[in-house]
Design a protein around this nucleic acid. Structure first.
Length: 267
DNA sequence: ATGACATGGAGGCCATGA
């Protein structure tokens, strides 16, 4: 089972790129972020034509997240992160699909720092921490994927010294991410490629992609049950080269269809 | 090391992003 996350930076503006990548990569489950479209303008028709079911949580102009599946029904379990009824941003959607609980998130950027946007980011992180604490120990595979807007370590930034004061790399943000992992989550890409340089985002400016001046900010976190099934993980860099493309690249993992089988006596 | 891009909304630039 292939599960991917892709910040499309405008689902309608990127529709040709998204459809082309879906046909090429053939993911089973996809988490999309930055739809930048209200619910009524989500392009479910063309996506359905490729065989994907979809659940989405849109918003006018900004944010917006969706989960796609071509392996069966999407049972939505949550829309919006719990803990703050005043939070109107569409940044979280969660569903049970094909025996896996999938959370799709778009964590706030947080710039400029300091300021109210940065405070919102830390607050969102705290609420995410509380919610993920309820999921990590489930006796079912759980994958929380999306744009975390955090480079976890210096290895995940092309020029760490330039990003120290940025909301994506500030010490308290990295600590918040580390605290999440402390619950028992596995960062799938880093787990399988501990020493590799891996980026998932490159600015549009100054030929950042050609220079490989990138950031690793899109992550798939796996609970222990899911981690036992992890067989592969990587970044699809190719779509980042295409015309009218997102500034992010798709990131994916492969989970073995069935975990190591355990014999049970009786019945 | 900021913004040389790029999005979408209601414009004829603005807010936002990372």
């Amino acid at each position: 089972m292939k599960i991917a996350t892709y910040n499309v930076n405008g689902v309608n503006g990127r529709l040709p790129v998204l459809l082309r990548w879906l046909e090429l990569a053939q993911p089973d489950i996809v988490c999309l972020q930055e739809l930048k479209a209200p619910d009524e303008r989500f392009p479910d028709g063309p996506i359905r034509d490729l065989g994907y079911d979809a659940a989405w949580h849109g918003q006018k102009a900004w944010n917006g997240v969706a989960i796609l599946s071509r392996i069966g029904e999407i049972h939505e379990t949550r829309r919006g992160l719990p803990g703050d009824t005043r939070d109107s941003h569409s940044r979280y959607i969660e569903a049970a699909v094909g025996g896996v609980l999938v959370g799709c998130l778009y964590l706030p950027n947080g710039n400029p720092r300091p300021g109210p946007k940065f405070d919102y980011k830390l607050d969102w992180f705290a609420r995410l921490h509380a919610h993920m604490a309820t999921l990590v120990g489930l006796d079912a595979p759980v994958v929380i994927a999306g744009d975390y807007n955090v480079m976890p370590t210096e290895r995940d930034v092309y020029a760490p010294e330039r990003w120290l004061d940025d909301a994506l790399f500030a010490p308290d943000v990295r600590k918040a991410y580390a605290r999440l992992l402390g619950q028992g989550w596995i960062d799938a890409l880093r787990h399988l490629h501990p020493d590799a340089t891996i980026y998932t985002f490159w600015k549009y400016l100054r030929h950042a992609f050609e220079r490989d001046a990138g950031l690793r900010i899109d992550h798939l976190l796996l609970n222990p049950v899911a981690a036992r099934r992890l067989t592969a993980a990587d970044v699809d860099r190719e779509p980042r080269r295409w015309k009218k493309t997102s500034d992010h690249a798709p990131v994916w993992i492969e989970l073995a269809e069935t975990p190591a089988r355990r014999r049970r006596s009786g019945r």
